[in-house]
Amino acid sequence: MRRSDFDYVLPPELIAQHPAERRSASRLLHVGPGDVLDDRQMTDLPDLLAPGDLLVFNDTRVIPARVFGIKPTGGRVEILVERVLDAQEFLAQLGASKKPKPGSQILVGADERLTVMGREDDLFRLRYEGADGVMAFLERAGQMPLPPYIAHAPSAEDRERYQTIFAREPGAVAAPTAGLHFDTPLLEALRARGIATATLTLHIGAGTFQPVRVENISEHRMHAEWYRIDAPLCAAIEAARARGGRVVAVGTTVTRALESAALEQGRERTVAPISGETRLFITPGFRFRIIDRLLTNFHLPQSTLLMLVCAFGGRERMLRAYDHAVAQRYRFFSYGDAMLIDPV
Rank of each mutant, 00 (worst) to 15 (best):
E160Y: 02
F57E: 13
H181R: 07
E157F: 11
Q105P: 08
R61G: 05
A65I: 00
M117R: 15
I70R: 15
A151K: 14
P148C: 02
R127F: 09
K99I: 08
A167V: 05
D132C: 07
R83A: 10
G179T: 03
T164W: 12
G133S: 05
G130I: 00
V173F: 02
P147L: 00
P72R: 12
L49C: 12
R125Y: 10
S97L: 15
G75R: 14
D122E: 14
G133Y: 03
M117T: 07
R113S: 14
R83F: 04
A87G: 11
V56K: 10
P170E: 00
D111W: 05
T177K: 00
T115I: 12
V173Y: 01
D158L: 05
E82G: 02
P148E: 05
K101A: 14
V116Q: 07
R76N: 14
L114T: 00
L85Q: 09
S97C: 12
V134F: 02
S104F: 04
A136T: 10
R125K: 14
S104N: 14
G69L: 01
L123S: 04
P154I: 01
Y162T: 04
D53P: 13
L85C: 07
M117H: 09
R83K: 12
Y128N: 04
F166G: 10
F57T: 08
M42I: 11
E129W: 05
G103P: 10
P46S: 11
R61T: 02
G118K: 10
D121R: 13
R125L: 13
H181T: 03
G103D: 07
S104W: 09
L85H: 06
L54W: 08
A92D: 09
A136N: 10
V173T: 09
A141G: 04
V81K: 01
Y128V: 03
P46M: 10
V62K: 02
E120K: 07
S104T: 13
L114P: 03
G133H: 01
L55H: 06
D53W: 08
D121M: 08
L54Y: 09
D53F: 04
E82V: 06
N58K: 01
L146Y: 00
D158Q: 08
E78M: 11
G171H: 03
P176R: 01
G142P: 06
R61W: 08
P170H: 01
V116S: 06
P46C: 10
M42L: 15
K71S: 08
L91C: 08
A92L: 09
G109D: 03
A136M: 10
A96K: 08
A151Q: 07
G118L: 05
F124R: 10
H152T: 06
E169V: 15
P147I: 00
G95H: 15
G75M: 13
L138C: 06
D53C: 13
D158I: 01
L107V: 13
K98W: 09
A87V: 11
P64G: 03
V77E: 07
R159W: 02
P102S: 05
Y128Q: 02
R66K: 14
A87H: 13
T115F: 04
D122F: 11
Y128W: 13
S97E: 15
P154H: 03
L80F: 04
R125H: 12
